[in-house]
Design a protein around this nucleic acid. Structure first.
Lengths: 77, 77
DNA sequence: ATGTGACTTCTAGTCCGTC
DNA sequence: TGACGGACTAGAAGTCACA
């Protein structure tokens, strides 16, 4: 499991949990709408700056977007 | 407190806690020594890919490098 | 062992669309 | 509402020499 995939999955999950469309989150985080779409599809490796802006738009902590969804645990590494 | 500063501080703290020099960590994470130096000095906003490689070199989770050093509450936003 | 300037290459990130 | 493409620019990634 690569970090981009973890991030992409967390981003989508938290966004949907917040009931936001990619477009609304894009507006809140001041990030391009098509870029968020790409991030959720693992096209890019975002910088911590956008991770932070996204987290703020979702009302969560930046670190939360990099956490493993758990369930089968993997912290090991 | 910006995310780069939090990351820079955490990187340096965890690196020193692990007893590693920038040079040794650079070797473990396969990242240039001078680039790590720059990151610890907030010159760049690292991508989650390098955050992850650095975390692995330190034996910790990528999310740990984005956590607030605590003290005086988090969630600043 | 680390900081820093200069430099080049590559990708993140934006903006325009269409399906 | 979101996937996806093209074209573009800003800035990260990576390397070197020297203090």
């Amino acid at each position: 499991m690569e970090i981009q995939e973890i991030f992409a999955a967390n981003l989508r999950r938290h966004r949907q949990a917040a009931g936001l469309s990619q477009e609304e989150l894009a507006y809140r985080a001041d990030i391009d709408r098509t870029y968020i779409s790409a991030l959720e599809r693992c096209v890019y490796s975002a910088s911590i700056d956008v991770v932070d802006r996204l987290a703020k738009g979702l009302g969560i902590n930046a670190a939360d977007l990099l956490l493993l969804p758990k369930s089968s645990d993997g912290q090991g590494n």
